[in-house]
Design a protein around this nucleic acid. Sequence first.
DNA 1: CAGTGTAGAGAACGAATGGAGAACGTCAAC
DNA 2: GTTGACGTTCTCCATTCGTTCTCTACACTG
Lengths: 210, 210
Amino acid sequence: MENVNPMGDPPLTRMQRAVLERLRDGHRERSPPPTLDELGRSMGLKSRGSLHKHVQALVRAGLVEAMDGRRRGVRLRDGAGDGDRAGALPLLGSVAAGRPIEALEVPETLDVPEALRGRGECFVLRVRGDSMVDAGILDGDWVVVESRTSARNGEMVVALVDDEEVTLKRIEQSPGRCTLLPANPACEPMEYAPERIRIQGVVVGQMRRY
Amino acid sequence: MENVNPMGDPPLTRMQRAVLERLRDGHRERSPPPTLDELGRSMGLKSRGSLHKHVQALVRAGLVEAMDGRRRGVRLRDGAGDGDRAGALPLLGSVAAGRPIEALEVPETLDVPEALRGRGECFVLRVRGDSMVDAGILDGDWVVVESRTSARNGEMVVALVDDEEVTLKRIEQSPGRCTLLPANPACEPMEYAPERIRIQGVVVGQMRRY
DNA sequence: CAGTGTAGAGAACGAATGGAGAACGTCAAC
DNA sequence: GTTGACGTTCTCCATTCGTTCTCTACACTG
């Protein structure tokens, strides 16, 4: 009856989740992987045998590495660290002017240095097209976007237009008018009534690989 | 560095990691490589035999140089001294066309994701000026440079001219001629005899903060 | 009530870690 | 050549650790 596929396993029990949270805490604090005794002590438990069963459930769920005599201590698997700021941000897809965001089939993350991030929650988009080429953003570049719903004039934003199209442009807002400015002489500025535009975030960083 | 072991090898044990940390401490203090006795004494151990086993595990993990009768003392391998700075590359200064690299007064490093790096040794430079603006490299950007002494035509290189000036340009090489091409119509291509040019590296990545 | 699931304690087993120390051979210094 | 330092290999021993299992207690459901 052991189902190896994590998607098909029953949901984690309360205790299993508590163990996972404890492990994530330790991971955030950069503690070495705890032995069963250490983990048990930190949770007020006395029996390695009992704890072992909880840990094995997490192993089966793909969240924890399997242990053995040579792999001691309870280690979280990569990606099970619960969005700590260890370096990876979600790559949500690609953005090309006038289209919806092309979501990826498999969720990905991308390492982004702290120096390129904003203070709030960030995500990454891949740029398609050259509408911002004069601002030094080329086709294929990654942009780091801080989730925000407002922006200052001149900031580069990811904007949702009419709840269906997404675009990356510089924004100029005045009462009754919202202008999205490209950085490419071959493209035209676009003007909208403010209620048609929804700012999804502001660009705070950019990266390119050659 | 904990994850530097190839897939399949068990992670370092606690003791092995403690030995590694002790070696890194000595490295930071510029101490000479300790003998097994010295290292053991500094860790409260009495047996060179036991310690030797830990050191050999670090050798197998590629973190420590192999010892023998002539190579005495425990030496960290290059790059193994930097524990928590595994993602950091040296920031060597800034590069503006026609000037020497402006070295920093205090050595700095910069976090650079693996995705932006080349296979070889890399360093980072800050760009000054806009001679490469049409290639999407703006004043203030960081470029990730892989140390190389040769490049293919069309690659962007950091080149030393006449052993004194440094510049960031696209390179075109033919017999008897070496051309450094800007990406800004306000700047002129420069031609040199090949022996006047020394390629310091090739640009493999770029980053910008807003 | 019986059955099921969760959760804990604790015992036992075997493997692995990690230590001490002895012995051997190599190497450099004298 | 001699000597001491040093790396290497090996044996032996103690402890830790993961794993498996049994038993018990509690809560919930039909």
